[in-house]
Design a protein around this nucleic acid. Structure first.
Lengths: 355, 355
DNA sequence: GTTAGGATTGAGACCGGTCTCAGCGGGTCT
DNA sequence: AGACCCGCTGAGACCGGTCTCAATCCTAAC
């Protein structure tokens, strides 16, 4: 009472049929644009629908067809510009295909990811786009394939999981970036990442994120080539909200790093801030390179040298593959590796001590 | 054929009921945790569900209950950090309440917005969160209220539409920001926005976006207080991808602006870049202030003075209000205005000529 | 003049849940 | 002992679409 008054009964196919004096089946055919309907029937139904203000109920349609025209997408954190761009890329192709996007943040935890997947499956998404929180543990993702729904990973792959994935050429990118540093004469080079990790990194160790693992591999290769294994530092597990502290440690010890490879632009920003507050000038006192061509990198002092990932394209391509799978493509899973491009600006110079 | 083999029949309540040797109704009650069920019945049903790998179908539930536990959100562009943050704010409270988020980008066009709203309504969202593309034309939004679903606006309001809205104190913010400039002695101050607009701005004109309108109002008030009406410039309609050109015009004429109020951080970044390429030093040659405490503003040279909006809170509060409406709160629509906070850094100095 | 066949239309089952209502056994009140 | 209430269970309708199948009508072919 009082509550019921606000509940507007929706206009249904049945209502339209009655109004147009045709059967429900015919009305549905005319409205849904399927099957065979004569022109005047179609006309009659449509004008009746117009008169009543009919709005189709997608969910009811999904119930009988089994297709929800909805894609689930799970990112680490939509506030991270990387994910925002990838999401936009995916949204663009998905919308163009008449699908919609349900978005969840995993905060890079297996628990949230598992929960998000479960909810999205329950919502009958036609497929999922996931940046997996863990490249090692495929258990939460398994639910997707078990449910028979296509899954496409982006940004990182997962071992032992035969699904499509779209990633960037992180290994090569990290190699190029690091090479710039070693060529300039740097030896005390640090690789800095926020990837969740306990204690020190041990060479050869398997990492939680394949993209970081690839970057580390590229980094290590360049380091090895320069014979700088002894002085290079790989620092993982920096807390997202306290990267600054870790960066400061790297830059202040008795043997401070003279160059840093930041694993993403958010980290690079923190390093930049710390360098500033420490009175270190880039590139004179510190060389800094990073992944992702964030908007500020061109603006900072001399400009930061970066390796740019085709982020929008990663999201778009992942979505395209997913749509193809949904359409029934049953071919072997593919691994798409998109090229990164080096953008040299002015943040690399020879180390001071070596000059 | 061949296609059919991949279609896994879902396990339904009926299947579980059969397995547990109970009626469908009882199984549903045990699984859905409603109604009265004895302990051993519940146990029997749950173990049967476990055995079969039962997964509830949210859509079917929505069909009969009418609640989808899904919220639609329409933003201008998820790549814009403002919207990314607001989305995260909304997602956090929405997920905490057991709801999900469907996201669409409107690209600030009425057409895309209308389409997105229509699709989301068809998907039976329980309510909508919208940053309206137009503060003047309520027609696309009307569909939402007509459908009887609650709607909460954020970032901007819409005239003649009695719905909740959560915005920031843009007028006051712009006033404070501009005041800083006039107090420093500036008179040739430009307000720069990308808000879609044809030709020159005429004082008193009604603008497409209430938030920009409020900012302009605050700007004008401060300008009037300083008696600088004759030399102040309000420049709207700068194309998003060509703000730089417009900024350059502002800074290079015979009477270049000595200070700029950027309507958002993306614009400020462009201005900053142009200033750099023009060899203008901030704040010596140009004072620059902006809305939004973007990550790079603290880093740029002396640091940009900004007025920070509580963006995450705007999204979160809008979501909270929406959930309350969905829960049945029928009180009068509210307009929540969240305070902005001034963060003074070093981008304001007296104009050169006046020194 | 039939008849096969294509085009339309209507009736009703179905998708997978929820929910109302009736039925049943047992305890309590009088 | 009879009325009544309560807890629990089962049967079946319902949400709003789609889709199968049979019935009907019409036209072209034999």
């Amino acid at each position: 009472m009082g509550k019921a008054s606000t509940v507007r009964r929706e206009v249904t196919v049945g209502d339209v049929a009655r109004e147009a004096n045709v059967s429900k089946a015919t009305a549905a055919r005319a409205l849904g644009d399927y099957g065979a309907v004569s022109d005047d029937m179609r006309e009659r139904v449509h004008s009746a629908a117009e008169r009543l203000g009919y709005r189709p109920n997608e969910l009811a349609r999904t119930m009988s067809t089994g297709r929800s025209h909805t894609i689930g997408m799970i990112v680490g954190d939509i506030q991270n510009p990387f994910f925002a761009q990838a999401t936009r890329g995916a949204a663009d192709v998905i919308n163009a295909a008449g699908f919609d996007l349900i978005l969840s943040n995993s905060d890079e935890t297996a628990h949230s990811e598992r929960k998000a997947i479960s909810v999205q499956l329950a919502k009958q998404v036609d497929g999922l786009l996931v940046a997996p929180a863990s490249s090692l543990d495929a258990s939460s993702l398994a639910a997707v394939t078990e449910a028979g729904r296509p899954l496409v990973l982006f940004d990182r792959t997962v071992a032992d999981l035969a699904v499509d994935a779209v990633i960037a050429s992180n290994r090569t990118g990290a190699f190029e970036l690091t090479r710039l540093l070693t060529s300039a004469g740097h030896r005390r080079i640090a690789f800095l990442s926020t990837l969740q990790h306990d204690g020190d990194y041990r060479p050869g160790e398997v990492l939680l994120s394949s993209s970081v693992a690839d970057r580390v591999a590229g980094f290590e290769k360049a380091i090895a080539l320069a014979g700088a294994e002894g002085t290079a530092i790989i620092r993982l597990g920096a807390p997202r909200d306290d990267v600054e502290r870790v960066a400061a440690e790297l830059l202040t010890g008795s043997e401070p790093a003279t160059a840093i490879v930041a694993s993403d632009s958010l980290i690079a920003l923190s390093v930049y801030r710390v360098a500033q507050s420490l009175g270190l000038q880039i590139p004179r006192d510190l060389s800094l390179v990073t992944f992702d061509d964030a908007d500020w990198t061109a603006l900072a002092g001399p400009g930061i040298t970066v390796i740019a990932q085709p982020i929008h394209a990663i999201g778009a391509e992942a979505a395209r593959i997913l749509l193809r799978r949904i359409a029934g493509d049953g071919s072997e899973p593919v691994l798409r590796v998109l090229d990164q491009t080096l953008i040299e600006r002015g943040s690399v110079a020879p180390p001071r001590s070596s000059t």
